[in-house]
Structures are given as structure tokens and as C-alpha cells.
């Protein structure tokens, strides 16, 4: 009997507490930058596509909802010919972001993706690619990779010696 009254009393007191619920969607929820929501493809500081089509995100994906095809431009720079994420399958685990060696694929704090039609949850590259560097500004994969691919000359990247002159005998 006492516990019943105590419970009712506690519930009554909660009327004077600060509200935890917000009036979504009129009022927007504030999320941390590292919150794992919608997946985007970002660009490098030169506004080139960061994705090099290495297939690591697709391999890491536990539900196999990423598929892509890598292709090359005339300089040998890799980019995805198509990049498709089936968000009706995605579990937002973020493994793809962890696997990405170029910081191209990122999960952003946006979850408002509801659709009436499941087919509309299939995102292609034009839906995924944004004009931003996302969470990792300043990073350009080709500057640290050995491949030249039109971004830099051979041996002009970060931490690279000039190309070897194979006719030289100087150590």
C-alpha cells in the first residue's frame, strides 16, 4: 500500500522536472558529430572525389549493402564508376568508415531518411557524394600514396624522395 502511494507520489513529482522529450519534428534533435547516421562520400581539399574504389568498405560491410565499380581517369586516378548503398539493409555499424583508407566514406549525424517506398532507400553515387571534406579536413590520399595519378608528380608527395636516377652510381 505504501509502495503504491510512493510510486504515485514520485510520478507526480516528475511533472515539475525538465522535459526529456522534444517536440520532434518541429524541434530538431542535437546530435554529436560522431553520431552514426546517413552515409556520405566526401571530397578531398582539391574538391576531387576522395573515394578511390578500393572495395574495402564493401568487404567490411556485414550486411553486404555496398557495391561499387572502380574505374580510372586518363591520369590513372581511381574513382567509383558507380557507388551504391542499399540503406534498406544498412545497419549503420560504421565499419565502412573504419575500413576506408581515404576518409571518403563517412557517417554523419543525420537519420531522417524514412521513405514509404523501399526502393527509394537505394542511394547511388549522386545521392551520396557531398561537396565537403566532412570530419577530416585537409586529407588527400594521393599526397601520401606512392601512385602519382595526376595529383602530384612521381616523388613529389609527402615524405617522398625524388625519383631514382637509375643511371647514377652515387649512393
Amino acid at each position: 500500500m505504501i509502495s503504491l502511494l510512493r510510486t504515485m507520489g514520485l510520478t507526480f513529482l516528475h511533472m515539475f522536472r525538465k522535459r526529456e522529450t522534444i517536440q520532434y519534428p518541429e524541434e530538431k534533435v542535437v546530435l554529436h558529430p560522431r553520431w552514426r547516421g546517413r552515409i556520405v562520400l566526401t571530397r578531398d581539399p582539391d574538391m576531387g572525389e576522395r573515394c578511390v574504389g578500393c572495395y574495402l568498405c564493401a568487404a567490411a560491410c556485414p550486411v553486404d549493402c555496398i557495391s561499387l565499380q572502380a574505374t580510372e581517369d586518363e591520369n590513372g586516378r581511381r574513382y567509383p564508376e558507380f557507388f551504391r548503398i542499399n540503406f534498406s539493409r544498412c545497419i549503420f555499424c560504421g565499419y565502412c568508415e573504419e575500413a576506408c583508407p581515404t576518409y571518403a566514406i563517412q557517417l554523419i549525424p543525420d537519420f531522417e531518411m524514412g521513405e514509404y517506398n523501399r526502393q527509394n532507400l537505394v542511394y547511388e553515387k549522386e545521392d551520396l557524394l557531398i561537396n565537403s571534406e566532412g570530419k577530416y579536413p585537409g586529407y588527400n590520399y594521393y599526397k601520401v600514396a606512392g601512385l602519382a595519378a595526376g595529383v602530384k608528380g612521381k616523388g613529389e608527395g609527402e615524405n617522398e624522395e625524388p625519383p631514382v636516377d637509375i643511371r647514377s652510381l652515387i649512393p
Partner: peptide, 16 residues
């Protein structure tokens, strides 16, 4: 066993 894209390869045609 690491084959990827199973649920996405043909999703552009039909999501099922």
C-alpha cells in the same frame, strides 16, 4: 567468403 555487395549489386533494379 568475403564476397561483397550481395544485397546491393542488383538493388538498382529491384530492392528485393
Amino acid at each position: 567468403h568475403r564476397f561483397s555487395g550481395r544485397t546491393s549489386m542488383q538493388a538498382n533494379v529491384a530492392v528485393s
